[in-house]
Nucleic acid binder design. Sequence first.
DNA 1: GGCAAGCTGACAGCAAGCTGACAATAAGGG
DNA 2: CCCTTATTGTCAGCTTGCTGTCAGCTTGCC
Lengths: 226, 226
Amino acid sequence: MKRMSTDMRALAVEDDPRIAADLQAALTAAGFRVEVTGDGEDAWFLGDTEDYDLVVLDLGLPALDGLAVLKRWRANDRTMPVLVLTARGTWQERVEGIEAGADDYLPKPFRMEELIARARALVRRAGGHAAALQEAGELSLDTNRMGVAIRGVPVQVTALEYRLLAYLMQHRDRPVPPTELLEHLYGDDDAREANALEAVIARLRRKLGPGVIGTRRGFGYFLEAA
Amino acid sequence: MKRMSTDMRALAVEDDPRIAADLQAALTAAGFRVEVTGDGEDAWFLGDTEDYDLVVLDLGLPALDGLAVLKRWRANDRTMPVLVLTARGTWQERVEGIEAGADDYLPKPFRMEELIARARALVRRAGGHAAALQEAGELSLDTNRMGVAIRGVPVQVTALEYRLLAYLMQHRDRPVPPTELLEHLYGDDDAREANALEAVIARLRRKLGPGVIGTRRGFGYFLEAA
DNA sequence: GGCAAGCTGACAGCAAGCTGACAATAAGGG
DNA sequence: CCCTTATTGTCAGCTTGCTGTCAGCTTGCC
């Protein structure tokens, strides 16, 4: 795992694998180092022994209930900010969540953007500055302002270019195959020619200069000097 | 932070005698020293002169409206946490309440348990209040008077325009995507065309002049910084 | 050398966003 | 209760700049 400018750790406790994957993606994109678990026992142990800057906790867990986990954390003086996810509209859960020591709650279904916004607010309120900066080599990516800078000098990129960079940054420990990038940028429903991606890469390279986006022929693209 | 068990004062402003009685009972049981009034004028006077740790405020008051009371408090720098109750749980009222300075909001009918939970949460994190005057570049917003000024010169804006500006101000560190603005201004239940937002932006720009509201194509709108 | 993967400049299509006009609705005043 | 005014959503036409495609080229690999 490569270094981030600020090291914000987040724990996501969610048993639905699809939501869990979304959580991980969104939080990672927001600059958190994310750990995911769907098991209540596991969650309790992690939250009790590790230091997180944020916990996203789903109440609808099998086995050990999310509320019980939260109460046991609070009973042990674990004071990290906890954002609780509740099934839709059940007022009891909200009440219990707050009384158990949740710092904020979000009813399902929710928008990832809102979750990120609330998560940042929580972290900021807790004292730490939200980790908005991700770096790889000379490239730095401000996930909050959606800004890109090379060696500190801001560079203007388009939305598509930004998404591409963000995805590479998220997976900077490996070369990302063109097929995967195409699917992430456009979705498999909308079929684009492979050359479209190459065009985006070319334009980005012209803006960022050499030595930022590398190619491993046959494997994919990656951020250099990460 | 004060202790709940020692001496927490709460003011309940509610004209319906039955609900008022319930409020008093529940808050007392929760450890508050409770005072109740059903008169807006009386409430305003009490809130302005006495020090409360919590206010529960019903908007549906005769004579002096609850919202007006709240605004007058905030205008006088009374920063105690206020939990607003409203009968008509419309989305607009919630916005108005929060923008008038409410710290939380509860639609009727509600469960007493939930009210107590929210009240406790409010008291627990009592402290952080939005500043009365917010600025970004040449633009300044007076959140108490709902007033807008550009370079010190007051500009008259409509309620909708103000809400848009307030939201941009609240998130002035990032570009706000149109989808998010649409959701905030109208709510997802009421679907508007995307162009409605552009129309509001255009009108605002004409009033405020250039260099205030910026656009980052593909990312969203933002307030130009100093 | 030959093939396939990848690069690049040019360009046209297209989508995001802007604006003025207008109608419908809401608010206010007599 | 009617009249007046302000607010605001919708529409049509327009501008801008993003982005996919194409053609031709370079590079690596066998």
